[in-house]
Design a protein around this nucleic acid. Structure first.
Lengths: 243, 243
DNA sequence: CGCCAGGTTGATTTCGCTCAAGCAATGTGG
DNA sequence: CCACATTGCTTGAGCGAAATCAACCTGGCG
């Protein structure tokens, strides 16, 4: 089981420390009790699908522990990794709102725990709490902004620039500092997925990584990345943007 | 002045045929009266900015007539055309919601009329109408989906494929059928912007257009595009996707 | 031991970018 | 009314980056 005691039966959502980080934290005790009763706690192993593109909406998912990849399948079969979700993230809210099928798929990248709140319950709670709607709206707005930024990055940065950008993001998200001050990052994804996020082929990615290592910006070894100094990385990024 | 009698003083928003197509159509007469009083009708000429990236939020904009380009300025100065807005579209709702600066700019592509509802008024109306929040949420969700689709297209389609895709979109949006059955499309944007939407340089775009003309799929002449048959265009698009 | 998935490396080719010139339409000032 | 600049678009030549195809590691596993 992954770390985090979230989603346990005892106390339900009311005391769930992960839930408190999600948009659901605007709910009062009553509604938390309601969804705490109605929710189902689901445990996944690596690589399982929480939902898949084309699936009918079955409610709202609250990621309690683990990391989930949000992908979209292109008509030609190849998949594009759109984003990573971490504990506290709500998944499937888009399909919930337009009542249609999921337009993305969510797949665990490691052991994970997800709580599902069935459609009837969450709809009722939503109707009772405009606050929650507003919070979801803010979330959606952030997501639009992120997507726009991704589009702009894709249009203006080089492959190398995008990889560096992604690295900085991931470093901010989950890196620890070694005793000698180097940042250590455990990549949550495979090379293939990494390439998909950067928007290139895995072979090309491999070469880019090689060049980054030559430049001494970072050292890759399997899924472990060691970054001795963050500054040169950021400086490089600035150069990519403005040059 | 562009076509459409929308946004006139007489009757205010209540009778505005354009407003009825926007998310504001969930409001009742009372609230429509409120915003009808508070709104200001703004007339723009070609190429003027409704708001610019970095501007403080000044309320919600309802596009009444004309076409508006939504852009994002990259740090290096080049601009990326993210989407086009048509009458009935609400603009600036994202900055309104997170209370921060505009993260995109909106610029008229021709003479246009926009109604601005100041922040105080629209905020009050929003508080009173969870319906409207929900409607905006649906809108935001659609926008996320669109952005995701754009990302996937960018990752999987060729330049030619993306241009064809864009053409089909634009044909659906505003083309008229000639007497001999050919579709005639008046492009709302310059070559430069077209290139930005496709994600390429204008020179490259020019060559792609040349090849499309050679293949007899469409004839470009300035901003006028004539498409004799839609089917082969769609077939090509399918090929681009699956091949 | 052989197999296999995930990853790297190499050789080749294709594609799109850059720089540069050309061209048509439009505007401007003398 | 004409010389001249400006703008928007097209065309061309050369080059560099990345896709493609293919071979080759390397570690895990039956």
């Amino acid at each position: 089981m992954p770390d985090g005691c979230a989603g346990r039966r005892d106390g339900g959502c009311r005391v769930c420390p992960v839930r408190a980080r999600s948009e659901l934290n605007v709910l009062d005790d009553f509604d938390l009790g309601t969804i705490g009763h109605a929710k189902r706690r689901l445990e996944y192993r690596t690589g399982e699908a929480v939902f898949a593109m084309g699936d009918a909406n079955r409610g709202l998912y609250c990621l309690s522990a683990g990391v989930v990849a949000v992908r979209k399948l292109a008509p030609d079969g190849q998949s594009v990794l759109l984003s990573l979700a971490y504990p506290g993230a709500l998944l499937g809210y888009r399909a919930l709102l337009d009542g249609g099928e999921h337009k993305t798929s969510a797949e665990t990248l490691g052991p994970a725990v997800v709580c599902r709140i069935d459609q009837g319950t969450i709809s009722a709670v939503l109707r009772r709490n405009p606050e929650l709607t507003l919070e979801l709206l803010r979330r959606a707005v952030r997501e639009v902004d992120n997507a726009h930024e991704a589009i702009v990055n894709h249009a203006t940065l080089s492959n190398r620039g995008r990889l560096l950008h992604l690295l900085v993001d991931l470093l901010n998200r989950h890196s620890r500092t070694d005793r000698d001050g180097t940042l250590v990052l455990e990549l949550p994804v495979s090379r293939r997925d990494l390439a998909s996020m950067v928007g290139t082929r895995q072979e090309t990615l491999s070469r880019i990584i090689g060049r980054i290592e030559e430049d001494g910006l970072a050292a890759f070894s399997g899924r472990r990345v060691r970054v001795p100094r963050l500054d040169p990385l950021l400086r490089e990024l600035e150069d990519c943007r403005c040059g």
